[in-house]
Amino acid sequence: MAAPVTARMALFPLYAFNIEVARAPWVTQEPMIAEMRLQWWRDALEEIGAGSGIRRHDVVTPLSHRLTPDGAALLDKLVEARRWDVWKEPFEDEAQFRGYLDMTSATLLRVGAGMLRANLPEAVAADAGFALGLSNWLRAVPELEASGRYPLPDGRPEAVQALAREGLERIDRARRARGSVDRAAAPLLFGVAEAQAVLKQAVRAPGAVVSGALAVAPFRERLSLAKAAITGRW
């Protein structure tokens, strides 16, 4: 809602899609049913990419109005990455973990920029996407562990701090390249300030990740969004 009205027409269906895909593995205890739910979305994206046979659906239909075939292919990779959520095996290594964050977070920025017809350099999408994805992931760690998942390839406090510091460094790097980002793409990055606040907490107190104490005050969150919406600076 902090985005301009014209941008919302693209971002609402994109983020609604993301919510539906993200929740698909969690609405059932049966892995095969979760796999079927994810496959339904992959089939819908295939239809959008082909430009024919698009199913009538509250999310799929408006998404198809703005999503390009290339964007549909990228979102298909996002859905594929979400298959990790269905099962309870740990990440094979840190490379797989990083790939998961990139596919489920940075991909939204890449696709969103395409739907907004705005330039967002790949380096900025990758850096901001890593920071946004990591901050959300760290906040989800307690629930993931409670469900029997192994959310971090290395859960030691010093490893968590190192990841959070990297996220902060990548936010700084993305902001240094702010001049290369179209103003129309700025709403995709309005969450960076909140991610920065969460990652700073994780650096100061890595134990807060496991205890579920990472949080941003609602007033501060609204204030940062309002500032970003008014100035366009993230």
Rank of each mutant, 00 (worst) to 15 (best):
V203E: 04
L199R: 07
T231R: 07
L188M: 09
R220I: 06
A164T: 00
A146D: 03
A217E: 14
R149H: 13
D85A: 10
Q201R: 10
F130D: 02
R178Q: 13
P151G: 13
A95S: 10
S52L: 06
M103I: 02
E20T: 03
T231V: 09
A7E: 03
L109Q: 01
Q201T: 13
G212S: 05
R8Q: 15
L67A: 12
Q201V: 11
A162I: 05
A10V: 02
L223R: 14
Q201A: 06
A164R: 08
P206G: 04
A213L: 14
L101W: 00
A208M: 05
R82Y: 00
G167T: 04
T6A: 15
A72P: 02
R98S: 01
D93V: 06
E94D: 14
V111R: 02
D172L: 12
D172N: 14
L38A: 04
F91Q: 06
E46I: 11
V111L: 07
A213Y: 01
F130H: 09
A81T: 06
E20H: 10
R156D: 06
G212H: 02
A118R: 05
G114N: 00
N136L: 13
Y100P: 02
A72H: 09
R149L: 12
P151A: 03
R170M: 00
E122H: 15
E122N: 12
A215D: 06
G129C: 07
V5W: 10
I230P: 01
D93N: 15
R165G: 00
I33C: 00
V5Y: 11
D172G: 14
D76K: 06
E169F: 09
V209T: 03
